[in-house]
Amino acid sequence: MQLLNKRPESLIDIKTHYCPGCGHGIIHRLVAEVVDELKIRERMIFVAPVGCAVFADKYFDCDTTQGAHGRGPAEATGIKRTIPEAIVVSYQGDGDLASIGMAEIVHAAIRSENITVIFVNNTIYGMTGGQMAPTTLIGQKATTCVNGRTAKQAGYPIHMSEMLATIKGASYVARGGVHTPAAIMQTKQYIKKAFQNQIDGKGFSIVEVLSMCPTNWGKTPKDAVAFVKNEMEKEFEMGVKKDHSAADDVPAAAEAK
C-alpha cells in the first residue's frame, strides 16, 4: 500500500469538537497544509478567537494564544511587534471579526500589520447557539431574527473583504470557500499567498472563507453546502479582492521594528 496523503504535521492528532459538516475542520487543515508546505511551523504563533474556533488553540501544533472576543488582531499585533520573526495568524469568525472586533481588524489593516488573518464567514453566531451575525443574509433565520433578517430592522450583511480592500494598508484580500472541491483548492492557494506575504514582509493579508454551519442553520451537511453555493456565493462573491503584494511601496509596519 502506498501512503498518498497524511495528517499535516501542524495539526495535532486529536479529535476536534466541531459538528458534522462544519467548515472549520477543512479550513484548519488548509492552514496546516500551507504551514507545512512553507516550513513555518516552528515560527508560527496561532491566535485563537472566541467562538467555535476557540479550541483551535489545542489543535495546532505550535504556540498559541487565545484572548478576548474580537481582539485577535490586537493580540497578533502585540506578538508580531515583540517577535518579528514569528509568523502570526489570527483566526476569527464573523461575529468576532465583523461585529465586536470591527475596530481591531480595520486598524490592523490600516497599520498594514504584517500578519495573516483567516476570517471564517458562516453568517451566524455558532458557539452561542445561532444568533444573527453581521453577515447573516436577508431573509436568513436565526435565533434573534426568527422570521428571517430584514434590512429594515437589522440592516444589510457586511461585506468585509470588499470593505477591507479599500484600505491602503491591506496588501492582500481574498474570499474563498470550502463547500466544493474546486473552492477548497482555490482557497488553499489564497491562504498560501496570505502566509507567503507575511514571510516576505508584505503586510496585512486576509482570506475570508465562506463556510458551513449546518447545526445552527438547521440543515443537513449536504443542504448546508448547497446553501453556501446557492445563497451565500450570491451575496459574497468569491475571488481575489485586492493584491497589492507585488508593489514595492507596501508599508509592512511590523518589519520596521
Binding site: T65, R71, A74, E75, A76, K80, A103
Partner: peptide, 13 residues
Amino acid sequence: VSAINMIYGAAGT
C-alpha cells in the same frame, strides 16, 4: 480596548 489586548499578545511572549 485594543491597547490592552496588544499588551495581552506582547505579555504572552
